[in-house]
């Protein structure tokens, strides 16, 4: 049973949202702002309904790039972090390049990637991967290093091999860090995919949501731009929510972050 303040706590954000949307609609109506300058929320909703199927199909294209990039980033990130965990020398040699990839703005790299990678899907995937990759490597590497000293001693005492140590000790210790990285990278992969689409332009027969927004912009279909934006925002929240749920699912039995509070 929720208390009154708890209810208010839940309702407050929704109420604020509703107020803003209503204010926005009122602003547009009273000032007779044309929809190619600023469409009201109702116009956006109407466009969303009308253009829904087309936009959703485009969203699916973007989503495919995003999820594929996230998957590849997770695999390569874990692999590289595991490699770094083997020796300080490997870590010291690799880390600067991982940082290099991270700090160079994707908008600046994307045009090059699009030139060199001919297959559009792969080009977009590469861009999104570059953005999503770093938090996964950095977090997983930190996690692999954070294994309890006492447990490390224990594994040595019992003569555990390298792989046993990695599988039974380092990986479970790194899991919460990896999952935190995954939650960050989920959002970044979407950003990477969108940026890449903006840069790539028409990339093939199938076009993603970002390109649709760009295209609508050229045609001054501002309500459609907003509709695409709404879909992207919902997708971003959805990805974050799904990853947070996945993280809780894996950690709920033991990690402090997912345990219920002590009563």
């Amino acid at each position: 049973m929720l208390t009154r303040t708890a209810w208010l706590g839940r309702l407050a954000p929704a109420l604020l949202g509703l107020l803003v949307v209503a204010g926005w609609e009122a602003l547009v109506r009273f000032n007779d702002i044309p929809s190619y300058v600023l469409p009201g929320p109702l116009a956006v909703a109407e466009t969303l309904w009308r253009e829904g199927p087309g936009l959703l199909a485009a969203l699916l294209v973007t989503l495919r790039v995003t999820l594929a990039a996230l998957l590849v980033a997770a695999l390569t990130g874990v692999l590289l972090a595991a490699l770094m965990a083997q020796s300080a020398w490997i870590e010291r040699s690799l880390m600067p390049y991982a940082v290099f990839l991270q700090v160079t703005p994707i908008v600046a790299i994307a045009p090059l990637i699009i030139i060199y990678v001919e297959q559009p899907f792969l080009a977009l995937l590469a861009c999104a991967w570059i953005v999503a990759f770093f938090p996964l490597v950095a977090n997983t590497a930190a996690g692999l290093r954070s294994a309890d000293r006492g447990l490390q001693d224990l594994f040595r005492l019992y003569g555990a091999g390298r792989l046993q140590r990695l599988r039974l000790l380092l990986w479970p210790s790194a899991l919460p860090h990896f999952l935190a990285g995954l939650r960050i990278s989920g959002g970044l992969a979407l950003i990477g995919a969108v940026v890449a689409e903006f840069v790539a332009g028409t990339g093939g027969s199938e076009t993603g949501i970002a390109f649709r927004i760009l295209e609508a912009g050229y045609r001054l279909q501002v309500p459609k731009m907003f509709a695409g934006l709404v879909l992207l925002a919902i997708t971003g929240i959805g990805i974050y929510g799904a990853l947070a749920w996945f993280s809780r699912l894996l950690l709920r039995r033991w990690h402090e972050s997912a345990l219920p509070p002590r009563s």
């Binding site: 019992y158 479970p172 990690h255």
Partner: peptide, 17 residues
């Protein structure tokens, strides 16, 4: 390995198991 048992100052248990 295994012929020596060691108990540390802390329980040193794996929280995930």
């Amino acid at each position: 390995p295994g012929r020596i048992g060691y108990v540390f100052q802390d329980p040193t248990l794996m929280p995930w198991g």
